[in-house]
Nucleic acid binder design. Structure first.
Length: 424
RNA sequence: GGAGGGAUGGCCGAGUGGCCUAUGGCGCCUGUCUUGAAAACAGGUGUGGGGCAACCCACCGGGGGUUCGAAUCCCUCUCCCUCCGCCA
């Protein structure tokens, strides 16, 4: 959520930011109109309340019943006026909140302007795409032949875009998750195990609601939603808190499954395990002081890159342009790994600094050590790699001519002696 | 699922309709005293909003209501505790 003062004082900055995001800036004008309407009503209501408070105090002190009755009668009508004004105020407040809630974060000035993902900029490529003396096969062939991915069973028990990992495939994914978590712990993040379901308020805090309701799964009778990313519960951990400056930065890591309806991507990436309604992810999350968030962003990006290097994957760092930048983000770098079987760079991580955008929505502040006013802090989030795509990259990069998969050395502690997955 | 009890400032805890619209204590900050510290004493110490300002408004778990006036009375929801039942 943006600061209402910013919208009030410099609406053109906000309009411009929406335009470069390929959005209609009309909500800005709605916010301005509602905001001035609100302030007029608020001033009227508060003036009457001040009067009522003062007179009510006199009534409490008054001894003569005649004076009391006259004042009580006068205040009755003042009370009625206040009720009318407060009803209007409530309505305007609700509309204002709704309008300001759908305005996206302002991109950092360094974010390249572009229409969509085609405007993203490759910052650097690390490693060379692996060469093969045979034609590398896609994971959906390898996985089925090796008996470690079963698409039919996923569809049978749940539906399209679901699959089952079996035997060494399931174990390989678990090994990658455990490896990532342990790596992030060494990098200085504290592991969290959170609920996988959250209430609406929590989703509002991280920015998924109200705008992206259609992409979420919801319990049909309770106020409970399945998390689309660990970023949601991790933002919620300190909702409505004022943290002491000495506690910052707070660095968390969490494994969660992620649930997404993928309504906007119907028909895309239908083959394989690249885009499912359920996938696993290990996330990094940082609460930082504003002046430190840029350095923390660089650190988090380096920590995410380390996961790719440790797995021996060729990757590139891509900066998202304004047209691709997610709703809450101020600046985002993606990590894309090369998958030779499907022949494409797969987005396995997005590392974002959202500034105070989520902190405002979730009401998370900190108290400076010098005792100054409380301030909103900054939050950052980044995947320590999303699972199915990392799994795809590992399978396709480590495949052999015989159709088996060599297990990366770093995963051996979790693989129980399996160093190669072969056709049974 | 049933019955009962709770939720008040950083923490503990008083407050059942006006009498400073939150007593008191702990903690914290400042000052006095002291070579310094402790102790003692005095003062201060929540969040948000509106206003150039003086100041005003709101907030006692959330929401709604009664009243001239609500932390206090009523309704409702959430969460916590105790007991009973059921159960992975």
């Amino acid at each position: 959520m943006l600061d209402i003062n910013l919208i009030r004082e410099d609406p053109e900055v906000v309009r411009t930011s929406m335009r470069v995001r390929q959005m209609d800036p009309a909500p800005v004008d709605a916010v301005l109109a509602l905001d001035s309407e609100r302030r007029v009503l608020l001033a009227q209501s508060e003036k009457l309340k001040a009067e009522r408070n003062a007179v009510s105090k006199e009534i409490g002190r008054a001894k003569d019943s005649a004076g009391r009755e006259a004042r009580i009668e006068a205040m009755r009508s003042v009370g009625d006026q206040i009720a009318v004004l407060d009803d209007q105020l409530r309505e305007v407040d609700g509309k204002l909140h709704e309008a300001i809630s759908i305005i996206p974060n302002i991109p950092d000035p360094s974010v390249p302007v572009g229409p969509d993902e085609h405007g993203n900029v490759v910052i650097r490529t690390v490693g060379e795409p692996r060469t093969f003396d045979f034609t590398p096969r896609p994971h959906w062939e390898l996985g089925v032949d090796l008996g470690i991915i079963n698409f039919d069973q996923g569809v049978k028990i749940t539906g399209s875009r679901f699959y089952v990992l079996s035997g060494a495939g399931a174990r390989l994914q678990r090994a990658i998750i455990a490896f990532f978590l342990d790596l992030h712990i060494r990098q200085g993040y504290r592991e969290q195990y959170t609920p996988f379901m959250v209430k609406s308020e929590t989703l509002f805090g991280s920015g998924q609601l109200p705008k992206f309701r259609d992409n979420l799964y919801k319990d049909h009778e309770e106020d409970l939603w399945m998390v689309p990313t660990a970023e949601v519960p991790l933002t919620g951990l300190h909702m409505d808190e004022i943290l002491d400056e000495a506690r910052l930065p707070l660095r968390y890591t969490a494994y969660t499954p992620c649930f997404r309806r993928e309504k906007m991507s119907a028909g895309r990436d239908v083959r394989g395990i690249k885009r499912g309604h359920q996938f696993d992810k290990v996330e990094m999350y940082i609460y930082a002081k504003p002046e430190e968030s840029q350095a923390e962003h660089a650190r988090m990006l380096a920590d995410a890159e380390e996961t790719c290097r440790a797995l021996g994957l060729t990757y590139r760092v891509v900066q998202q342009c304004t047209g691709d930048l997610s709703f809450a983000s101020h600046i985002t770098y993606d990590l894309e790994v090369w998958a030779p079987g499907v022949g494409e760079w797969l987005e396995v991580s997005s590392v974002s600094n959202v500034g105070d955008f989520q902190a405002r929505r979730a009401n998370i502040k900190y108290r400076p050590a010098d005792g100054g006013r409380t301030r909103y802090l900054h939050t950052l989030n980044g995947s320590g790699l999303g699972m199915p795509r990392t799994l795809i990259a590992v399978m396709e990069n480590y495949q052999t001519k015989e159709g088996s998969i060599q297990v990366p050395e770093v995963l051996s502690p979790w693989m129980g002696g399996i160093d190669r997955i072969s056709i049974p």
